[in-house]
Design a protein around this nucleic acid. Structure first.
Lengths: 189, 189
DNA sequence: GCGGCGCATGAACCCGGGTTCAGCCGCCGA
DNA sequence: TCGGCGGCTGAACCCGGGTTCATGCGCCGC
């Protein structure tokens, strides 16, 4: 729905920059240092805040009723999360030491209502998000775990090096054991 | 990001109503009758239009490189499609006789730029869409085909009755043969 | 009515991923 | 230094879904 203009700044970067400026102006920009392994959000527990990652690495994950974990997505270096749904169907945990800012969602909504430029940046961001999610849906529907892994290696080689084998597996939708087999197949031929 | 107000009208209905009013005012509202089986969009072929379904049933599907079909989603009775991505990674085909309106995407963008109420309706719609897609991603990641089928039966019983077995299977991400087995398991115990 | 065609189903076999157990290795703390 | 522990890997077995072939059924046109 948006003009696909070749932006010099990505949609999430542009939105984060504007949010940072506004939050600083209102003295809400409090960086919180989280060591690796910090449980930032618990699945099922609603939060009145939206979360800004300003540095580090966070995973968003689902816990199935029978106790298995599946990773919804990673927030790498900088990003925004917990804007998706009110009921919060997923959890969040840092994978590296991370800097996180919590902003009241009511404050964010008020900013959106006031500022047209911010609203545009937010619309661009949600379009960007929707596109990424559409691609993930397509891969989950159409591609095997092995194909998904090869594509991940192509498009996110830097991310893979920062993840544990188990987390890669749970992002691909398989177990660490099955992921180990896939790597062996790709090595051996 | 939006207040979860209990709306008496669903987000897509509200947006469609406003679009219909504006398109009629600009004399762009031309209903086209498509018999069942009409290929409305071809995967990979970009379109300068967005599509409004005003009655009928449409499937959006992916074609894998090796020729298999997977169904991304259904547009039931009324809805909007082809707003997701510029490169159009999916195709669209009517499953029942359907009434469809094509609107130039440039016109739609101009309306959005002018009208704040429309912009809000669009934002609500994309939020609604993102929520549905998040749920589908969660199911594809966490649930087996059988669980996905049971949930579909719970939440969309009316839709299931209008679909062929093959299309249900391809929406679940499996083949018609595997779907037949699942139904037998659920019947027999 | 009859023949054909497409969809749904059953049956047999294959393969990829799940599960479990065991061994290995590196890290860290006592 | 040594022991323990957690992450990764290999091996064996199970199961669900894919593939293929065959049957059955309903629909439509001749």
């Amino acid at each position: 729905m948006n003009p696909g203009s070749a932006a010099e700044e990505s949609a999430p970067e542009a939105l984060l920059r504007q949010i940072r400026i506004k939050a600083r102006a209102d003295e809400l920009w409090h960086l919180r240092d989280c060591p690796a392994g910090t449980q930032v959000l618990v699945q099922g527990v609603a939060t009145p805040d939206l979360f800004v990652l300003q540095g580090g690495l966070v995973k968003l994950d689902y816990l199935t009723p029978d106790g298995r974990e599946r990773i919804k997505s990673f927030i790498v270096d900088r990003g925004l999360f917990a804007i998706e749904d009110a009921d919060l169907s997923f959890g969040a945990r840092t994978l590296e030491p991370s800097q996180i800012v919590r902003l009241p969602i009511g404050w964010a909504r008020a900013q959106l209502a006031q500022d047209m430029v911010l609203r545009q940046a937010y619309a661009d961001f949600t379009d960007w998000l929707r596109l990424r999610k559409a691609r993930r849906e397509q891969l989950l529907l159409c591609a095997s775990a092995e194909e998904r892994y090869r594509l991940l290696c192509e498009h996110e080689p830097g991310l893979i090096r920062r993840l544990s084998q188990g987390d890669i597996a749970r992002y691909l939708g398989i177990t660490p054991v099955a992921f180990s087999r896939i790597k062996r197949r790709l090595r051996g031929g």
